[in-house]
Design a protein around this nucleic acid. Sequence first.
DNA 1: CGCCTTTGACCAGCGC
DNA 2: GCGCTGGTCAAAGGCG
Length: 112
Amino acid sequence: MDREASSRLQLPQDGYEWKKYGQKFIRNIGKFRSYYKCQRAECNAKKRAEWSETEPGDLRVVYEGAHNHSSSLQDQSGSSQSGASSTSANQYNLLNQVFGDNPPSDYRRSGD
DNA sequence: CGCCTTTGACCAGCGC
DNA sequence: GCGCTGGTCAAAGGCG
């Protein structure tokens, strides 16, 4: 799958499985937005990935909701987390999480 | 064969 | 009331 070539996307592995269910261009921010949903059944967690069409480095990932199950991937980089409290560890931790540090200007109501 | 990905269209809410 | 945007769903195709 060379989706990266088609969409130019390189979402960081968060340790969960996602299924893309939509992709639209948001004029409000002038960037593309992809909609992902957790592949689990009892999981209503959703993921939103947006990136600029001209600047792929401006990738932004926003997690919405929480997972009801533990992550599918665990051995990311030798993180010996041992099965201590995986179910309650990632509850509202990924709420409004954003990757990247190059905000365009708006999006976060700087003025307000 | 099963699974995933991609695109289009539809619907709803808001602004004017 | 209309136009526009944002968000979600559905269907089809390709690959292993």
